[in-house]
Amino acid sequence: SDYEVNVNGIHHRFHNISEELIKFIEEALRRGEDLREIIKKVRELLG
């Protein structure tokens, strides 16, 4: 049904976003950045 496609589409989009965010955060932590600064950047990215 349309509803299922829609829900799956939304889930898929969020899954991709969270994968990208996790990579972004892991790389920043590897560079020794402060978690609070990383979260601030993530918030800015998400608008």
Rank of each mutant, 00 (worst) to 15 (best):
K41M: 14
E4F: 04
E20C: 03
E27W: 08
H15P: 15
L21A: 12
E44F: 08
V42E: 00
H12P: 00
N8Y: 01
F24N: 05
E44R: 07
E37V: 14
V7E: 06
G47M: 12
V5M: 04
R43F: 12
E4S: 04
R30H: 15
F14H: 00
S18E: 03
G47E: 12
K41W: 12
E37A: 10
I38E: 00
E27C: 05
R13S: 15
Y3H: 04
D2T: 06
I39A: 03
S18H: 05
V7A: 09
I10M: 13
Y3D: 00
S18I: 03
K23P: 04
K23D: 10
A28I: 04
R36M: 14
E26D: 13
I39D: 02
Y3N: 01
L35Q: 02
R43A: 15
A28T: 05
Y3T: 01
E19D: 13
E37W: 11
E37C: 06
I17E: 01
S18V: 03
E19V: 13
K41P: 01
G32Y: 06
I17L: 10
I39Y: 03
V5N: 01
L45M: 13
R36Y: 13
H11F: 13
S18N: 11
G9F: 00
E44M: 06
R43Y: 15
D2C: 05
E4T: 06
D34P: 13
N16C: 05
R13M: 15
G9C: 01
E37L: 14
H15G: 10
I22S: 02
V42Y: 04
E20I: 09
K40C: 07
N8L: 04
N6R: 08
E37D: 13
V42G: 01
K23N: 12
I39G: 02
E37Q: 11
L45A: 12
D34R: 07
E4M: 04
I10S: 07
R13L: 15
N16V: 02
V5Q: 01
R36K: 11
I17Q: 01
E19F: 11
D2V: 05
R36P: 12
I10E: 14
E20G: 09
L46D: 08
L21W: 05
S18P: 07
D34G: 13
H11K: 15
H11D: 07
E20Q: 08
S18Y: 02
K41Q: 15
L21P: 00
R30V: 13
N6A: 07
V5T: 02
R36G: 13
I39E: 04
K41D: 08
H12I: 15
E44Y: 09
I10T: 12
R13G: 15
V5K: 01
F24K: 06
L21R: 02
L46T: 13
V7G: 05
R31Q: 15
E26N: 10
E26I: 11
L46V: 14
V7N: 05
V7P: 02
V7D: 04
G9I: 01
Y3F: 11
H11I: 15
L46C: 10
G32R: 00
K41R: 11
G32M: 06
H15K: 09
G9E: 03
G32I: 02
D2G: 04
N8K: 05
R36T: 11
E26R: 08
I39Q: 03
R13F: 15
H15L: 07
E4V: 09
R31S: 10
I39M: 03
S1T: 14
G9P: 00
L35V: 14
I22R: 09
L46R: 08
R43W: 13
L35N: 02
G47L: 13
D34M: 09
F14M: 00
I38P: 00
E37R: 08
E44I: 07
G9L: 02
L35P: 11
E26K: 10
N6W: 06
G32V: 03
F14G: 00
V7Q: 15
F14A: 00
H11L: 15
E4I: 09
L29F: 06
S18Q: 05
L35K: 02
R13H: 15
S1P: 04
N16G: 14
R43P: 05
Y3S: 01
G9Q: 02
G47P: 09
N8T: 02
E19M: 09
H11V: 15
F24P: 01
G47I: 12
E20D: 13
N6T: 10
E4D: 13
R13A: 15
D2R: 01
V5I: 14
E26C: 03
E44Q: 10
R43V: 12
V42K: 00
Y3W: 08
D2H: 06
H11T: 15
F14S: 00
L35H: 03
V42A: 03
N6P: 01
L45T: 08
L45R: 05
H11N: 13
E44S: 06
L29A: 06
L35S: 03
E4G: 02
N6I: 14
L45W: 08
R43I: 11
L46K: 12
L35Y: 02
L35A: 09
N16M: 07
V42F: 04
R13W: 15
E19T: 12
S1I: 14
D2L: 04
L46A: 10
L29T: 05
R43C: 06
D34F: 08
A28P: 01
E27H: 09
H15V: 11
K40L: 14
N16L: 05
L29N: 04
N8W: 00
R13T: 15
K40P: 04
L29G: 03
S1C: 08
A28K: 08
L21M: 14
I38G: 00
I17M: 06
S1L: 15
H12T: 03
I38F: 02
A28N: 11
G47V: 11
E37N: 10
Y3L: 06
E37H: 13
N6K: 08
S18C: 01
K40D: 14
G47T: 11
K40W: 11
I17K: 00
L29W: 05
L21V: 12
R43S: 14
K40V: 12
K23G: 10
F14T: 00
N16W: 06
R36F: 12
I38T: 05
N6L: 09
L35W: 04
E37P: 05
E4K: 02
L46I: 14
L35T: 06
G47N: 09
L21C: 09
E33D: 13
E27Q: 08
N16P: 02
N6E: 13
K41G: 07
E27Y: 09
R36I: 13
R31E: 10
L21H: 08
D34W: 06
H12E: 06
I25A: 02
H15Q: 15
I22K: 09
R36V: 11
H15F: 07
S1Y: 13
H15C: 04
I22E: 03
Y3V: 02
N16I: 02
F24A: 06
L46W: 07
E26Q: 12
L45C: 04
R43N: 15
I17G: 01
E27P: 01
I39K: 03
G47C: 05
I25G: 00
R31D: 11
R13N: 15
V5R: 00
Y3K: 02
I22Y: 04
K41T: 12
R43K: 14
D2P: 03
D34V: 07
I39V: 10
E44H: 08
K23A: 10
D34C: 05
K23Y: 13
I22W: 07
E33W: 14
A28L: 12
K23M: 14
S1R: 15
L21Q: 09
F24M: 10
R31N: 14
N16K: 04
S1G: 08
V5F: 05
A28V: 05
D34E: 10
R43H: 15
E20W: 09
V5W: 02
E33C: 06
E20S: 12
E37G: 09
K41C: 08
R31T: 12
L45S: 07
I39F: 03
H12V: 14
E19I: 11
R31M: 14
A28Y: 08
Y3R: 01
S18D: 07
A28E: 15
F14Q: 00
K40Y: 10
N8P: 03
H15I: 08
F14P: 03
H11P: 07
H11S: 15
V5H: 01
R13K: 15
E20N: 11
N8R: 03
E26V: 10
K40E: 14
G9R: 01
S18F: 04
L45Q: 12
H12N: 02
I38M: 04
V42I: 09
H15Y: 08
E4P: 03
G9N: 04
I22N: 01
E4R: 01
F24D: 06
D2Y: 10
Y3P: 01
N6D: 11
L21I: 11
H11W: 14
I10A: 08
R43L: 14
A28W: 12
E37M: 09
R31V: 11
E4H: 08
L45P: 05
E4Y: 06
L21S: 07
N6C: 06
H11E: 12
D34A: 12
L45E: 09
I10F: 13
E20K: 10
E19K: 13
K41Y: 09
G47D: 13
H12G: 02
R43T: 15
N8I: 03
N8F: 01
L45Y: 09
R43Q: 14
N16Y: 05
I17Y: 01
K23R: 13
L21E: 06
E26S: 07
H15M: 06
E19G: 11
L29R: 05
K40A: 14
I22H: 04
A28S: 13
Y3A: 01
R13C: 15
A28H: 09
G9D: 06
V42S: 01
R30I: 09
Y3M: 04
F24I: 09
G32P: 04
E27G: 09
L46P: 03
L46Q: 15
Y3E: 00
S1F: 15
F24G: 05
K40G: 08
V5G: 01
K40S: 12
I25E: 00
S18A: 05
E27M: 09
S18R: 04
R36C: 05
K23W: 12
N6S: 11
S1N: 11
R31I: 11
E27S: 14
I10Q: 13
